[in-house]
């Protein structure tokens, strides 16, 4: 069963950017893409557990703030070394100006 959690307002995230969302002892990264869609992944990079919310979003890529590993945040796929383990991704929907994530 879906477990939709209210993460933030849609306007809280700049276009082509990312913010951190913590819930129930877990941490996530919530993204707004240049084409105005929303996505959610695990918050910590799979390389050295650095939070991705401090990283740089370019198009559909998030670059880790530390060691420049990259992921496609739509699928969680690791796309550049040193990361080699994919990120977990979670369903997202926007309702009434709020971003909801299914975690």
């Amino acid at each position: 069963m879906a477990n939709w959690i209210d993460a933030c307002a849609a306007d809280d995230i700049d276009e082509e950017d990312v913010i951190r969302f913590d819930h129930d002892g877990r941490t996530f990264a919530v993204y707004r893409s240049p084409d105005d869609n929303y996505f959610c992944t695990d918050g910590l990079c799979t390389h050295e557990q650095v939070h991705l919310a401090d990283g740089l979003v370019m198009d559909h890529t998030i670059e880790c703030p530390k060691h420049n590993g990259q992921f496609d945040y739509r699928t969680g796929e690791a796309t550049r070394t040193p990361v080699c383990v994919n990120l977990g991704v979670y369903p997202v929907k926007v309702e009434g100006g709020r971003v909801l994530i299914d975690i």
Binding site: D54, G55, L56, E63, P65, K66, N68
Partner: peptide, 11 residues
Amino acid sequence: VGNAVAKDIKL
């Protein structure tokens, strides 16, 4: 502190 400058340095 932490990775506060990371995004701007990448840019």
